[in-house]
Design a protein around this nucleic acid. Structure first.
Lengths: 104, 104
DNA sequence: CAATGAGATCGATGAATGTCAATATGAATG
DNA sequence: CATTCATATTGACATTCATCGATCTCATTG
């Protein structure tokens, strides 16, 4: 005779709406180019878009796409100074991002 | 006259290979169904696949797909007992997962 | 050993995503 | 105000992904 199956869990815990939001945040972190971009911002404090293309080996439009995704997730923010936009990790998220990049 | 642009950052920091691996881990967390699945496992300790379908409102094959993704990311592990497989959060990752689910 | 049942795999499909070239926008320059 | 240049947006394309029904696998049951 075998053990009975487990009890059906109540559908509580993380609510669907909260799960959607959290999943979106992790989605922003699920691309290697974006992780390397965050890593660069952490070590350089501030970097403008034009100087992200070379180290990340991606076109200007692709870099622009990734900065937009990260900004919409609230992970980075950009400040325009003259012709350039300087990107940095959102101060409130800096320590959190630093820890996530330190280890999976 | 305007400020000069920033200095081109050296392409160090997170290496491409490490970024790929980390991105894969976050990818496993970037789906709301998988996040809710993890949440259920945390509150119930152990749940078999058959009892995940109802609370997550997904088909058997879809649940199987998600458990596979989470297991391959090292976030959950399953133990077969008779006909059923009991899933739980990998003990070594439990605290880490708990913190991630607690807040983005 | 045939029947049952839990879970894995396969195949198909529609949606989302990463990428780039081309073009648009908008600030600085002369 | 025309030009230049940094960045954003658009359109196209290939790839990945979430999902489900159907089928396969394999342990338990009778």
């Amino acid at each position: 005779m075998e053990q009975p199956c487990c009890v059906t869990p109540v559908a509580e815990g993380l609510l669907p709406a909260a799960a959607d939001e959290l999943a979106g945040c992790f989605g922003a972190l699920s691309d290697p180019i974006r992780l390397r971009l965050l890593s660069l911002l952490i070590s350089e404090s501030e970097v403008c878009s034009c100087n992200l293309e070379a180290p990340l080996e991606r076109s200007q439009s692709t870099i622009s796409h990734h900065t937009k995704v990260l900004a919409e997730a609230g992970l980075i923010e950009g400040v325009r100074r003259g012709r350039w936009i300087w990107w940095r990790v959102t101060p409130a998220r800096l320590e959190w991002v630093r820890q996530l990049l330190a280890l999976g």
